[in-house]
Structure formats: C-alpha cells, structure tokens
Nucleic acid binder design. Structure first.
Lengths: 342, 342
DNA sequence: GCAATAGGTGAAATGCATTACATACCAAGT
DNA sequence: ACTTGGTATGTAATGCATTTCACCTATTGC
C-alpha cells in the first residue's frame, strides 16, 4: 500500500501542502483550528514525511555510513555502540556494512554509501597498506573523502591525508611488552594479525622497538602474524608448541588471538600463565570473564566510536579538525600475564 | 562541495539528461560516440547518481532496517552476518540500530525507519510482551508492519499476526534439560533472562514442562531470571552459592549468562563441570573456545539471519509467506555439562 | 484614517533521477 | 514515392517535502 503523503493530508484538511509542512516543522504560525485539524489527520493516518524527499532538498540524510571488517569480533560492536551513543543527540542513524576483510566489498560499500549520500563515513579496521590489489579501494576512499566527511578509525593510509581517529597502538604495544619484560620475561613471541594491515604493522614495529629498547633479542621464528581470529591464535600457538625452544611469554595482536593461544595452550596441557604469559589487546568485554582473565591493553573502544562520530560531526559543520585524534590506551593487568618470574 | 548531478554531465556532454540516464541504466540504445563521451565524463567526475532521487521515484530504497537489542552479545552479530550474506545478492544494505533493550528507543528507531522508507524491517530480540509501558512500541510495530514488510526474529507478540522467523527455543530448552537429566541430574536450576521477554518466558515454560515430563521437582528458589549479560550469570550464581542447598546443574538462557555462571563458580573454588553442570544457549563462537567449552543449544544464528532476509525479500515481492518460519535448534554437547553422574 | 506590522495561507521553484511520450532521422520494403 | 520500423534523443511528468515570495486580512500606532 502506498504511504500517505503530505498531499493527502493537505487535501483532506482543505489546505495547501505548505500549511501542512508548517505544522510539521513549526516554521511559521498556523491558525489554531487549522493546526488542530491537520494534527488530527497526521495522527489518524500516522503520517510520516518521506525522509528521501526531505533529504533531496536539504542535501543531508542523517545517515552515517560505517564499514567494519568483522562485527563478530567484539571489539567492533563496542566501537559501534560508542558511535551510536554520540550520534543519538544529533539524530543520526547508521548504514552498517561488514566487509570481512574483503577489499572488493569494501570499495563496493563505499560506493553505495556515496550513492546514498550519507552525511559521513566511518571506516574501521584500517585494512589498508598500499599494495596493488588495494589500489582501487584507496582511490575510492580518497574519492569519498573529497566529497563526504570521512574518518579512518584505527587505520592509516600512507601518502594520503585522510582524517584519522586512532588509539596509539604503538604506545599500547610498548606498554604490554614492557609489562612482560618487567615480569622478568626475555623470550617473547608475537602472535596474530594480517601482515598487510596497518594495525599489525604498527604493532610489529612497536614490538621490535620495545624489545630493542630493553636490549632483548627478537627471535624471528617466534614472530607469527596470521589473522585476527581465535583460530589463528590457536594455530600459531600450535606452531609454537611444536618448536624445540619456545618463548615464555607472547604478545597477541588482539584478545581474540590471545584467547586462541590460551585455549591451545591449555589443550596441550600447559597452564596459563604459569607455563606461559599471554597478553592481548583491545580489552573486549570478555577479557575479564575469560578463565584465566586476560591481561590486555584497553583501547577504550566505546570512546573511540564516540570520538570518531564527534570528529565526523565537526567536519559536517565545516569546523576544522585535527588530522589525527589520538586516544591513549591503557594496560589492564589481570591474570594471563602471571606473576613475576622467579 | 556539491556533488555532480546528471544535469552537469548532460550539459557538458551536450545531450539531455535522459540520454545520460540511458547510459547509466542501459535502458535504451545510445549512439556509440555519445555513449563514449558520457561514460568518459562519468569517469572523470566520478559521478554517482543520487540514490535518494532514484528512490523517491522508484519507491524503494534498497535498505533494510534492523533493530537489535544488543550488538555486544555475539549472538546478534552472527545473525546480522547471515542477514548480510543473504542481502548481498539483491544489493540491499542495512540501517542498523542498537536498542539496548530500551523500549522508547526501539519505537523511535522504528519510526525513523518508516520515515526513511526502508524496504523491510527486521526486528530482533523480541523484547515484547504486552505490558503497559510497551503499548506504544507494539502499536508502532504493527503500524510499521502494515506498510513495510516486517519480520520478527525470535520474538512473538500476542494478539498480533506479525510474520515471524524463530528458532524453536522451546524444543531447544527441552533438548538441554533432557541432556542434563540423562546425565543423571535431578536438581536443576534456571538462570538468566529478563522475565518480560518472549524468549525468557518460552524457555521458562519449556523448562518447567521438561522437568515435569521427567517427574522432577522444580525448585522455585533455583529459578533465577535476571538479564542476558555475563554479569547477571555471575550474580545469580553467587545467589545460588549462598544457598544451603544448591542444584547440581543449571540451564542458562544464553551463553553469556552461562559464562558468568561458570566464572563465578570457578572464582568460588568450584570446578565446572565436576561440581556443577552448566548448559548455555545460542552457541556463540566463543562457546567452543571457552574453558571449559560450553555445552549449549545452537540456534544457527547465521541461518536465522539469512532466513529472515529471505522472508523479507519474499514479502517485498508480494509473495505469500508463512506466518512462522521455524528453525530447529541443535544440542551441542561439549565440556561444561560434564560426564554422567555416578 | 492610513501606513506599518503581524498573522495566516497559497503558488511555485527546488532537489535529482527515471520514464512515458513525442519527435526526428534513416534505411528497408512495397 | 510512401509507409513502416528501428535508432537516437529530447521534453515533460513524476515522486514528496521544504521554502521563498507573494498576497490577503486584521490589528496597532500615530
């Protein structure tokens, strides 16, 4: 059934559409009796003005497009919740797309968002690094950013000047590694993360630097990037377990891989943290419910989402925004990193 | 900066907008040279037709509105992923809203979706039961359903005939309880779930029936609905632990509460499943990574999402759909329910 | 008593793409 | 030579709400 339009209301109230519009938006005085009649009809037909017609004219949709790599990883819903929280006040809603790390999909979604004239774009996950196959995505992203306020959340992009909001993952990594070192560990591994992702490369670099700063050797066979899933943690832990020598502690790129590592360790008969210390990254809600509780680096996911939307809103109202808004991560010490080594 | 429109392209190509439109949609033959020139300009300006203008005319937006109670609970992202999977082919995208169980928000979002003229609505979580405060939400939902294809996912609503897609949670509960009984348990508790939610009442009823069928007594002090969070599981487990007599097994309304129960148990020095058997519901991805691995009832979340969108698409093309599409849950026996009692 | 102002309302332009209808051209068929 | 039909393209209507401009009526001030 066709929905009721402003014309239907106007006709039945025997006024022009302008008058109905005035009642709707309260933009000009309307006679009490006329207003009453119109309001009654609006009520009666449960009339909702067509947002598209309005958007077409106003040149704004009230929609923010969000692209996340994997909503199934609890980190992202947290960010999203933060974003939603901030968007609440301004009445923005979200067009959400899950790219599951598929470059083609990501640029396709981006183009759909441009088509739909979203008011802003939030691109999460930063699975970007200039490699040939991603050329197109990068191009599309830059294209989008030139017409639509766009922020990159936790993901940089070399040779472009897109606005970014990000946790200082480098500092976070240093925090985690230093914590392990302070506990007495000298043999530390690195697990998880697709190597072509910004976040992975940042963490890898920071890891190496922290080790170097402590004058510790980085053992290349213990550097095991993979992906961000629980299974990748398991897989790499199994690899580690098969080695003659293994580290006494591992740094994991996120909590999901940390959970995988612990799980595989426990299945192999290890006790975590007694036989191996594990730290994660993100502080997903589950981190402090897992057994053992995860020592991890909190990204303040909620805040990250909020900030991203704040920046987006500032851009929408043509305010100047910083090229990079950085959030400080925090080390959350719990059980999985264990006690100081004797 | 204003985006390029079809008029801009037409002007520069020295043709009418219809011709440009024809090139865009390939709806009629266009002379090779003209087409080439237009295509070149489209490329040059990276022109994307305005989806709103098109939607306004076509009376469809290509958007499906989704309302989930809590994206932070891993069950929902799974459902969403399934929905997205199915929507891929038809090119639908999602307007997603997180209601966090707030009735006011839910009906507000519903009204926004109506305003935005989404092509379909997927309402998850079924936090509905006719109580006074929810009157408005119910009304809004029925209102929506009368103009927009709408499906309720895992949530019924008395006295209405909204289309539903749901796991047979009743059968699932029976599966879980019977499993515990078969293991030799006779003293079984029930934990979690807000009592005004459809899913909770279904599970409560099914639980009682399963107990009765086995001629077991339901101990009212062990019936502990609360909410769906990990913390509610913890909280109720603590209540249980404070009792003089406690059950040897508990059925939890979802995996999150089960995790809370186990966690609180372990913290209190119990060993799960040796000291108490625990079964959950949903089979979230983490269920088989948790320590101990969760025995749970799989809802086939992904399939649920897919099915919901399938039904929605059928409704959009005016096909007749069943009032209720039911999915069979499956018991997944893992560690947390333990071995048969001696 | 007349201008100025405020209240109340309608007509028409606007935003942008799609599409039915109209028109123009050219080649083939009778 | 004239109809027929395909190809190629333009004009105008359409979808729906907002907003500017114009206009009318009734008051208020001087």
């Amino acid at each position: 059934m066709r929905q009721v339009t402003i014309y239907d209301i106007a006709k039945e109230a025997e006024v022009s559409i302008s008058t109905v519009s005035r009642v709707l938006n309260d933009t000009a005085p309307v006679k009490g009796s006329t207003r009453a009649k119109i309001e009654e009809l609006i009520q009666k037909y449960n009339f909702q003005p067509n947002a598209m017609a309005r958007s077409l004219l106003k040149q704004e949709t009230g929609i923010i497009g969000v692209i996340v790599p994997d909503l199934t990883n609890p980190f992202f819903p947290e960010v999203f919740a933060g974003a939603e929280h901030e968007a609440q006040q301004s009445g923005h809603t979200f067009l959400l797309s899950n790219s599951i790390g598929d470059y083609a999909k990501e640029s396709e979604y981006l183009s759909i968002m441009r088509e739909k004239r979203v008011d802003g774009i939030m691109f999460l996950g930063g699975r970007i690094n200039l490699r040939h196959c991603e050329e197109h995505l990068v191009q599309e992203l830059v294209q989008c950013a030139s017409v639509i306020p766009t922020v990159l959340v936790n993901g940089g992009l070399r040779n472009t000047d897109l606005i970014r909001v990000a946790t200082d993952e480098s500092a976070g990594t240093a925090l985690a590694v230093r914590h392990l070192i302070e506990l007495g560990h000298t043999e530390i591994g690195f697990i998880g993360g697709e190597s072509n992702m910004t976040t992975t490369s940042i963490k890898l670099r920071a890891f190496r630097k922290a080790m170097k700063d402590a004058e510790l050797e980085v053992r290349e066979e213990w550097m095991l990037p993979d992906s961000f899933s629980i299974d990748s943690g398991k897989r790499q832990m199994l690899n580690l377990l098969a080695m003659k020598e293994r580290p006494t502690a591992v740094f994991c790129v996120n909590d999901y891989t940390a959970i995988g590592v612990i799980k595989a360790g426990v299945e192999a008969g290890l006790s975590i943290p007694d036989d191996m210390s594990v730290v994660g990254f993100d502080d997903i809600p589950l981190a402090h419910h897992f057994i053992p509780e995860l020592t991890t680096v909190s990204q303040q996911a909620h805040e990250l989402g909020r900030t991203a939307v704040k920046v987006l809103k500032a851009m929408m109202s043509n305010e100047k925004v910083k090229k990079l808004t950085s959030l400080e991560p925090q080390l959350v010490v719990r059980q999985s990193s264990g006690a100081p080594m004797r």
